[in-house]
């Protein structure tokens, strides 16, 4: 059942996840489509999130957006400082954005970074953990992760677990997607694009998530505002139809269907890289178990659940 609608208001809206933002000219969603999207959300009783570009939107757009309760996802470099001040989620597109940004302690932050920058950026991440209430780190080149990176990633997360522990010791219960999410969950909590969340793109069409809008030519649109969403094979977005994921306990995994499609050609099948990374995170989370009394994360003998799921 669809619970969330993500409205990407412009072609150049910031990416807050694994996919690259479009790099062409700005193209705003039409006001008619924006209104229709909001109306659809109201009637379907779904929660709306708007994803913004860096430039200031025309006032008319803000007036329409304010007609519904919503959350704002805004790039850290947004020209509209008023929007930035009230944003629910602020996206730092790369480590270089950190130094110049004035952090708000009551906002959630997304740090988009390459694998290599992350593996060598321990101090920058620790710096962020000291300043924000929630940090989501998203790696933008998951496909480059090799088995040789596993140890480095584990060491990085081990070191960051110490930084998190220090925050907790200081009374700041910071949330960090790579380490604390797994400890706070008791079941899978994934992105659920195409199942609980869909996106409305500037072309007035629905997609499982904004990532698929970038691959619009591959036939991933799932309906339009005129006829409403029409998701073919909707079961494949659900956890129970994902043979690897349904028996996995890396509950913090995004289970990114877009990455799945890129790596394995199937929305319901994660690639090796995604599985390895989330299991390194899962295992590193165990270091923080003393901070979460009553929580258990059993020791397991594999990093890729494919090894136990394959026929």
């Amino acid at each position: 059942m669809i619970k969330y609608l993500i409205i990407q208001v412009d072609d150049t809206s910031v990416s807050y996840c694994h996919y690259p933002a479009l790099t062409g000219k700005p193209r705003l969603i039409s006001l008619d489509d924006l209104r229709a999207g909001i109306l659809w959300a109201m009637k379907e009783n779904v929660t709306v999130q708007f994803v913004y570009p860096s430039y200031r939107l025309p006032d008319e757009y803000h007036r329409v957006i304010e007609s519904i309760d919503h959350a704002d996802i805004v790039p850290a470099g947004c020209e509209d400082t008023g929007l930035l001040d009230k944003a629910d989620v602020i996206v730092l597109d790369g480590m270089s954005r950190i130094a110049s940004h004035t952090f708000r302690s009551n906002a959630a932050y997304v740090l988009r970074t390459s694998k290599e920058d992350l593996l060598t950026g321990r101090d920058a991440v620790a710096y962020l953990l000291d300043r924000v209430m929630r940090l989501n780190v998203v790696i933008t080149d998951v496909e480059t992760f090799t088995d040789d990176d596993t140890e480095r990633y584990g060491k990085l997360l081990g070191s960051l677990a110490e930084a998190v522990a220090e925050q907790y010791a200081a009374g700041r219960n910071v949330q960090f997607n790579l380490l604390t999410d797994r400890l706070m969950l008791d079941r899978m909590n994934n992105c659920n694009a195409g199942w609980e969340t869909i996106a409305l793109a500037p072309d007035g069409r629905f997609y499982p998530c904004p990532a698929f809008y970038g691959d619009a030519d591959k036939g991933y649109n799932i309906g339009d505002l005129h006829l409403g969403p029409d998701i073919k094979n909707p079961q494949l977005y659900r956890l129970d139809h994902a043979p690897i994921c349904r028996r996995c306990d890396a509950w913090q995994c995004r289970r990114c269907t877009w990455l799945n499609c890129r790596l394995t050609l199937e929305v319901n099948t994660p690639g090796h890289q995604q599985c390895i990374m989330t299991h390194v995170e899962r295992n590193a989370s165990r270091r923080l178990l003393p901070l979460f009394p009553g929580t258990e994360i059993p020791e397991i003998g594999y990093l890729d659940p494919f090894d136990i799921a394959k026929n």
């Binding site: 139809h241 043979p243 394995t264 199937e266 099948t269 994660p270 690639g271 090796h272 026929n311």
Partner: peptide
């Protein structure tokens, strides 16, 4: 076509994962 690689780059095992985890019920 569902290509899983070629003689130059080898086999992309990610593209075999859906086949090797496919079961009747799913």
């Amino acid at each position: 076509a569902w290509m899983i690689g070629n003689i130059h780059d080898g086999i992309d095992k990610n593209r075999l994962r859906p086949f090797l985890t496919l079961d009747r019920l799913t």
